[in-house]
Design a protein around this nucleic acid. Structure first.
Lengths: 157, 157
DNA sequence: TTTATTTCTTAATGTACATTAATGACATTG
DNA sequence: CAATGTCATTAATGTACATTAAGAAATAAA
């Protein structure tokens, strides 16, 4: 845990980094963002004074988010291991953050088909257990659009 | 903290409820969902065996999510106060869950203008501090679309 | 079984937003 | 100062997905 000064534009973390830190903003403004296959940026979160910002993947998995400074900032950086989070309930909550993070990145940047394929990977069993229209409702699209997405996906293979 | 059996279709929690609980699924399948102004459902999360499901607003604020059973299920329900979460770091993480929850509901169900207006309410100061194109990137739309959204909004007033 | 009810798919049309490109306002640099 | 880059806006066109409607297919009920 140490205090650092960052200049506007400076990058604190890149996608793929391991063992990422948690940043607490004392002054200034940070942001986290992902970059999709087409090279487009999608801002995941802004972090002004007194916010914390971090990638919410487990420490042993390559992170998804870039973090950089939108203004000159003063930031306290902490190792995830140094956080005082020991009990089971808190650990479950942190896992949940990772799920939600991926969900938001999907919703911001992916097409219907991509969302669907990611969903199948994440919940292979659920696809069998619930009607298609509920899956569409989870993906934020209509059942008709999901049906069409599956059709065009089948054509590709 | 007590174990309950729920039948398929049974509702455990409604939007607007206070002091909502955390549900841990032993068997079966629950879901949480929001309903937008047009009456359309948007599934926020599926919770099969060993998942937890809850509304992530603070206990004193009316919750956003409905929770019901998609299959006959056995569920352990816990008061949020009874969770062993005492330290500051964990509390900050829980606040974060609330922010992400609102973000996902927005991305699933709201139009560009609605997203923008919600953003202004949530981060009134950020709007002044960053270029429009970054706000567009946060909302998941292009700067052009944001510009058009603001134009039509101005016409309405 | 027959009759409903729900669910999935297909197709026609509509709309919100993306893409591309051009323009002018500002700021930055030499 | 001109030259360059960044940013916001507008308009023309394109596309992904929504909406609406209608017909199969599966499920549940009588």
């Amino acid at each position: 845990m140490n205090k650092i000064e960052v200049k506007k534009g400076q990058i604190l973390q890149r996608k793929g980094d391991l063992n990422t830190k948690v940043y607490q903003v004392e002054s200034g403004l940070l942001r986290s963002y992902s970059i999709d296959e087409k090279g487009k940026e999608h801002i995941y979160m802004f972090a002004p004074e007194n916010w914390i910002i971090a990638d919410n993947q487990p420490p042993d998995i390559p992170c998804e988010l870039f973090i950089d400074a939108l203004e000159d900032s003063v930031v306290i950086s902490t190792e995830k291991n140094d956080l005082s989070i020991t009990n089971e309930d808190s650990k479950k909550i942190i896992k949940r953050l990772g799920v939600l993070q991926n969900r938001i990145i999907m919703l911001m940047s992916a097409s219907a088909i991509e969302c669907y394929e990611y969903f199948i990977k994440t919940y292979p069993d659920i696809v069998q257990r619930v009607p298609q229209k509920l899956i569409a409702s989870y993906l934020g699209i209509t059942p008709e659009a999901l049906s069409a997405a599956k059709r065009t996906r089948a054509l590709k293979k």
